[in-house]
Computed example of a mutant assay.
Amino acid sequence: MKILVIGAGWLGTQLATQLKADGHELWLSSRNVTKSSVVAEQFGHFVLDLAQSVRPTAELESLFKDALIICTVPASRTDGDGYTRAVAQLATLMKNCGALACIHLSSTGIYEGLTGEVDEQTELLLTDARIEVLAAAEQLINKAVPCCTLRLAGLIGPGRHPARFLSGKQAGLADVAVNMVHSTDICAAVSAIVQQKLWPELFNLSSPAFCSKAEFYLTACELASLPAPEFEPKNTAAAPGRRVLSTKSQKIAGFSYQYESALAALPFCS
């Protein structure tokens, strides 16, 4: 299968490596030519800057036609309009150029403001501007082509050690759930989804077993030899945390989480 990964970043390159090993034809995009020499050593490469106005060229039309598109464009916390425009342009390209389908890497940040257990059927707080941006992006792509939306928990893995997130900082409540997913598990899930052509679909990807925020970050900082974060005293009046359930993704045939809990993934982060 011809697969185009939009974004040759930290996760995009890992996904491309896995899918190439699966026997697929891989192309990666970057926003400018500076990355082309590095990417082109292993994969096909093309330039696509979704921050600018994009017109479909003959090259893009040929690449997109009948291809599976994997969208790794990250949602910006400071430029929601820019993210929406980028996704809208990609959706238009896919539709107009005859793409086969899309795997859209969204975020479990879409559940912000909610407490307790949340899953793919949970009603979202669309009055929140950031959540509205994430939901709108999901809808744009789903309307363009058949889409498998993956809502990813916090990203950890090689080159992305969670100790750096909160080391030496105020870290909030200690006993709330931490929702994380290792890049190895993301790659394995995407591999199984591609093999079975599971689109349209929606899955949360998050390590299944509960792990408290304090246990996770204290262990992470100890392993990385970094100063520990500081947590607030336990407050029984505080709102409960949010736990992202990944029960549905655990039913994907041929896929299982290598790291059942985020704590188990820590030795495999760097």
Rank of each mutant, 00 (worst) to 15 (best):
I69P: 00
V73N: 01
P74N: 09
A75E: 03
S76P: 12
S76R: 10
R77I: 12
T78H: 15
G82S: 04
G82F: 02
Y83S: 13
Y83K: 03
Y83A: 08
V87N: 08
V87Y: 07
V87R: 05
L90T: 02
A91P: 02
T92K: 14
L93V: 05
C97R: 08
C97D: 07
G98S: 06
L100C: 14
C102P: 09
I103K: 00
H104E: 03
S106N: 08
S107M: 03
T108A: 09
I110F: 08
E112K: 15
L114H: 08
G116K: 13
V118G: 05
E120P: 07
Q121E: 15
T122M: 12
T122S: 15
T122A: 13
L124S: 06
L125W: 06
L125R: 13
L126Y: 08
T127R: 13
D128K: 04
D128Y: 02
D128S: 05
A129T: 13
R130S: 09
R130V: 04
R130G: 03
V133I: 10
V133F: 01
L134K: 04
A135Q: 14
A135T: 09
A136M: 07
Q139K: 04
I141G: 00
N142T: 08
N142E: 14
A144L: 05
V145C: 02
P146L: 13
P146S: 15
L150H: 10
L150I: 15
L152C: 14
G154H: 04
G154A: 08
I156H: 00
I156A: 03
G157L: 05
G157R: 01
G157E: 02
P158Q: 15
G159H: 10
R160S: 12
P162W: 02
F165T: 12
G168Q: 11
K169C: 06
A171F: 04
A171P: 02
